[in-house]
């Protein structure tokens, strides 16, 4: 009981515990921190081959044990005094030919922010794929934007036309079929894709040598005529 009543022992106990726990946490952070960071990067990187090359080609590439060269850079687009940042991943085939770009974009959805990865071909003329990184849309309705069938509609669309959303099927060339019961979610995603494409597509250059591109500074444009800001 004397131990319990001594303030000194109490103080030392708390200090000792704090040091012990602190050391344990530092150890865990040192061991797991890199793994967590790698996970965060991998989450995006793992999607890139499929977005740019499509399922079949990327599976083929993986089977051949080949890997793409991927470099990321940040583009900032200035409009009406607002600067919007896009992370762009440029993708090269193993032999050094540029195959496309993946742009990380976000915008307001129905319930919360939606984060997308938009795949574009090397010239930025066509969309090659779409992936939803993060969303909080209504499960069973708006959350269907995650499904392959709906996302797949964006493939092969030209980036020179603005995509519009139509209800009830029968989507034509530059149209996207809305998810029934979730028109707002469908419109939000299409809107984000349109804005991203309009802002970024013209900034993409084809460079067939990954090494040379790394020194290109972030591209800036001033375009007060268009009002495409969405965030």
């Amino acid at each position: 009981m004397s131990l319990k009543n001594s303030n000194l022992v109490q103080a030392w106990l708390v200090l000792l515990l704090a040091t012990l726990f602190g050391t344990a946490l530092a150890g865990i952070q040192a061991k797991l921190g890199p793994v967590i960071e790698a996970n965060k990067v991998k989450e995006t990187m793992a999607k890139i081959p499929v977005l740019v090359l499509g399922e079949d080609l990327s599976a083929e590439l993986a089977a051949d044990n080949q890997s793409l060269t991927i470099k990321s850079r940040v583009i900032d687009v200035k409009k009406n005094g607002i600067t919007k940042f896009y992370t762009v991943y440029d993708v090269w085939l193993p032999e050094g030919k540029m195959v496309g770009h993946v742009v990380k974009a976000d915008g307001q959805g129905y319930a919360d922010k939606i984060e997308l990865l938009v795949g574009l071909d090397a010239q930025g003329k066509h969309i090659t794929g779409l992936f939803v990184l993060d969303q909080k849309e209504t499960p069973g309705l708006g959350a269907k934007i995650m499904e392959d069938a709906w996302r797949g509609q964006f493939k092969e669309k030209s980036t020179e036309k603005t995509l519009s959303v139509v209800k009830g099927g029968g989507a034509k060339e530059d149209e996207i079929d809305a998810i029934s019961g979730a028109t707002i979610s469908s419109r939000s995603v299409t809107g984000i894709v349109n804005t991203t494409v309009a802002n970024v597509a013209s900034q993409l250059q084809v460079t067939d040598n990954p090494a040379s591109n790394s020194k290109t500074p972030a591209v800036q444009t001033e375009d007060p005529g268009k009002n495409k800001e969405h965030s």
């Binding site: 603005t162 809107g191 349109n194």
Partner: peptide, 10 residues
């Protein structure tokens, strides 16, 4: 409240 999206702009 925020600037008009560009679909209507067109």
């Amino acid at each position: 409240l925020k600037p008009v999206p560009h679909v209507s702009q067109v």
